[in-house]
Every structure is written in structure tokens, then in C-alpha cells.
Simulated assay, not measured.
Amino acid sequence: MTSVTILALPRSAFAELTATSETLRRHVEGFRDKTRRPQNKYGEAEIKLAAGHDGEPTLAGTYVDYELRPREYELSVAQTVLKIHTRVADLFNDPMDQVEQQLRLTVEALRERQEYELVNNREFGLLHNADLRQRIHTRSGPPTPDDLDELLAMRRSTRLFLAHPQAIAAFGRECTKRGIYPPMVEMDGHTVPSWRGVPILPSGKIPISPTHTTSILAMRTGEDDQGVIGLHQTGLPDEYQPGLNVRFMGIDEKAIMSYLVSAYYSAAVLVPDALGILDHVELSH
């Protein structure tokens, strides 16, 4: 029904490995002894039931995981060259305003590429950096309220869902079948659908497979909340926006002005449960 990952080790290879390590062999034998149930004289397994308790349990010490070799994130870069003819200065009263408008469109295109990479990049993209324990499958194919409830239950303080517009429409159809009408909420001046008070934001950058399935992401955001955070370079020369700079490259022999526009970015999931994914979301039957 759904994709899985299987790691298989032949029994002969396992036996060969345990034969070379006395420590491993003792560990395996100890595990086997713990899992064997005692048998009575009739060869039947005995099950002992106990009520109450005897003494106080010994609590093991609590330790915080410490990564000796933490992952290092390298910023990705998206670049493009904006070219404007110097005749712009002759045709318009305010040539710098025209340059500003061309630059605005160029930056928007770069930000679109940045959003795609933050979702799909193999190194740091959200779809490829979710912990396997935080990935679940839909119960019946289409995204149902039960599926989103399970996704919510896997983490605290979920700040948002991220889904393809077609996945949001499919979720709306499932809600309508059940007579449920999720409320709309306002976020950054926009009205968006929500579930359990968590906004569902649309992103056309989430891919749709050839079998017409996609994924829905749920995340906690912010460094203070140990969530998903965006990374960018600070202190860039000729910085135009955070993590983005514009450098004048000169005028060529054809009287064309060139500007190098660069955006530096990445994303990090600070703890595994900050990001969860609902996979194999069917968009239609």
C-alpha cells in the first residue's frame, strides 16, 4: 500500500559476525534469555501475575544527548545577473526607480527558487530531513481530519501545516463528507484555512508524484521553541535584504549595466519532533 524501507541481514552473515565478537555474542545470548518464557513440566509457558509493588523502583539518571560531531550546515546560494540597458536613463525621468522595479522582480524570482530548495533540496530540504519516526501515512488515501490529528499529536506547539493547494482542497472535501467545516484564520494579513486552530499554508513547491500523491508537512518553528529555523548569511557587503546582496558589475561595450544578485540560505530542524510529514496523500481516486 505504501513505500517502506527494509534493512535485511542474512542469517549466515549475522552468525559470522557474532562468531568474531565475544562481547556481541554475550549480548545476543543475554537478549535471548530475557525473551524466553519459563516452561513448566508440561512444556507450557508459565505466566506469572503480580499485584502491588515491592520496594521503591530505582530511577536511572537523566542525561541529555550530546552530539560529539554535530552537523554543520553550509549555506546554499542562488544567483542571477540583472541586465539593464543604459538607455533607461534617457527614457525615464527617474531611472533609478526603473532599476529598483527590475530588481524587485529579480529578487522575487530568487525567493521563489529559495522556497523550492527549502522544501526539496536533498541536503537541507524539509521533505528530506524529517526524522523517519516523524513520518506517517494516511489511513485511507485522501487526507482526513484523523490524519491531521495524528500529525498534530506527534509534537507540541505545532505552528503551521504546509501543503500543496490540491492537498488542501482534498482535505476540504474529506471534511465536507463528514459535515465538518474548518474555520478560517488570519495569518500575516491573509485568511487561510486551519485545523484545530493551526493554519494550513499553501505551497506549490511541494511536489505531486506521477501517481497523484503528495505530502503534508507540520512544523514547530523558531529557535526559542527548538523548532524549524531558516539560516542566512549576516553582514553581507552590499546587502539588499537579509541574506541577499546586489553588487554592481559594471557596464559592458553594449552599454548594458549588470548587477549580480545573490541569495544565501538554508534550513535546520533543531530537534527531530519539530517537523512531521504525512506521506502518500492521495489527491483524487
Rank of each mutant, 00 (worst) to 15 (best):
M1K: 10
T2W: 07
T18R: 12
T23C: 11
T23Q: 10
R32T: 07
Y42E: 14
I47G: 10
G52F: 09
D54M: 07
D54P: 01
E56W: 02
G61W: 00
Y63C: 12
V64A: 11
D65N: 11
D65F: 08
L68K: 15
E74H: 01
E74T: 03
E74W: 01
A78H: 07
T80C: 15
V88Y: 03
V88S: 09
F92Y: 11
D94C: 06
P95E: 09
M96C: 09
Q102H: 15
Q102I: 02
L103C: 10
E108V: 03
E108N: 10
A109D: 05
L110I: 14
Y116H: 09
L118Q: 00
V119Y: 08
F124E: 13
L127C: 07
D131A: 14
R133D: 15
R133L: 11
Q134W: 02
S140Y: 10
G141S: 08
T176H: 09
T176G: 07
G179F: 04
I180P: 04
T191V: 15
P193H: 02
R196A: 14
R196C: 12
I200V: 11
K205M: 13
P207G: 09
S209E: 06
T211V: 06
T211S: 12
T213L: 06
S215P: 06
S215I: 00
S215Q: 07
G222N: 06
E223N: 08
D224C: 08
Q233A: 14
Q233C: 03
G235R: 02
P237E: 04
P242G: 01
I251S: 03
S258K: 11
L260Y: 00
A263M: 13
A263V: 09
A268I: 08
P272N: 02
L275K: 01
L275P: 01
G276Q: 00
V281F: 00
